[in-house]
Nucleic acid binder design. Structure first.
Length: 307
DNA sequence: TCCCAGGCTCAAC
DNA sequence: GTTGAGCATGGG
């Protein structure tokens, strides 16, 4: 509870780039502050030179929790040096230097990116906000009301029409199904980070004979969850924006038919099959290395912000 | 009005 | 295993 400061002297960090890069959908800019709901509390942040000024609503949301959430423990300088393999990525890194990969709550990340499919960031923010306001517990901060991200149990208990009323469209049934799976313990989200990338990914997109474990979770969403909430820094999610960057700047990374399949997907003639997605992602990971996820995030943000 | 969006599922080859 | 339609909706 209260105000404190995190010293980021000598540590590359840009709060705006980090919060605006489409990793998390709940931060809002209010004047000179960024306000967000984390866990069971609310926090507002302001970057002033080497000082990150924080005002928190709860004791649990302290400097250690924020330091961890913001990924400040990662050696970003070394990470960025390792991914700058060419002019394009170097340009993106220089332009958005200090953008960090957040370490988000797995459940919130999973459901948010399930909701994010075939949509756009402004609208995703709206859908997630509606879901929280409708189903999440209320919490007060500086006289204003905020909503916590709803638990899996709460979402699982919600009626389909209530979910649809959040503007989720056809995603409503996936949201309910995912919440039920998590609520029933068909998948243990907390243990994902303990597995390696391949194993954790397998658990997320597992398709058992009787039923798929998480309906609506495919390779792209799984990669986002692994990168943004399970410490898998090599995960390389490929959405339409990243596919565009790869096709426009990195066609040489892909052999023969793969290059053509990518171009075809970018032009909208076909879509990426599961196998093609995996081959593309594997090639990108091989090229950028163990921190390929950072490269992906810089390229994604660069592509979205250009012009 | 039309196109597009941090894709995925399902049926039909 | 691969492919193509269909999906709900709102922002631009």
């Amino acid at each position: 509870m209260g105000e404190f400061t995190i010293n980021t002297e000598g540590v590359p960090f840009n709060l705006r780039y980090t919060l605006e890069s489409g990793q998390s959908f709940r931060w809002q800019e209010r004047g000179e502050w960024w306000v967000g709901v984390l866990g069971h509390g609310v926090v507002k942040l302001k970057q002033e030179g080497a000082a990150l000024v924080c005002v928190s609503s709860s004791d649990a949301l302290d400097s250690h929790a924020l330091y961890d959430y913001l990924g400040l423990g990662s050696d970003l300088e070394r990470i960025l040096a390792s991914i700058m393999k060419d002019g394009k990525i170097t340009e993106a890194v220089q332009k958005f230097y200090g953008l960090r990969i957040l370490k988000q709550d797995v459940w919130e990340c999973l459901l948010s990116f399930a909701i994010a499919t075939n949509s756009n960031i402004p609208r995703i923010r709206g859908m997630v906000s509606n879901l929280c306001n409708r189903l999440g517990d209320a919490v007060d901060f500086e006289g204003n009301a905020y909503s916590l991200f709803p638990t899996a149990d709460r979402v699982a208990q919600a009626e389909l029409p209530d979910l649809a009323a959040c503007g989720l469209g056809y995603r409503a049934k996936f949201v309910k199904s995912i919440a039920e799976s998590v609520s029933l313990g068909r998948v243990n989200l907390d243990e994902l980070r303990l597995h390696d990338y391949a194993k954790a990914r397998e658990l997320l997109i597992e398709d058992l004979p009787e039923r798929k474990t998480l309906m609506g979770i495919g390779p792209k969403v799984a990669d986002c969850v692994l990168l943004f909430s399970c410490d898998k820094d090599s995960a390389f999610p490929i959405d339409v924006w990243v596919a565009r960057v790869l096709d426009g700047n990195y066609p040489h990374l892909f052999e023969g038919d793969l290059k053509e399949r990518l171009a075809s997907a970018v032009s909208g003639k076909t879509s990426l099959s599961l196998a093609t997605y995996d081959r593309l992602s594997a090639s990108a990971r091989a090229y950028f290395g163990e921190f390929a996820g950072y490269a992906q995030q810089y390229l994604f943000h660069y592509e979205r912000m250009k012009d």
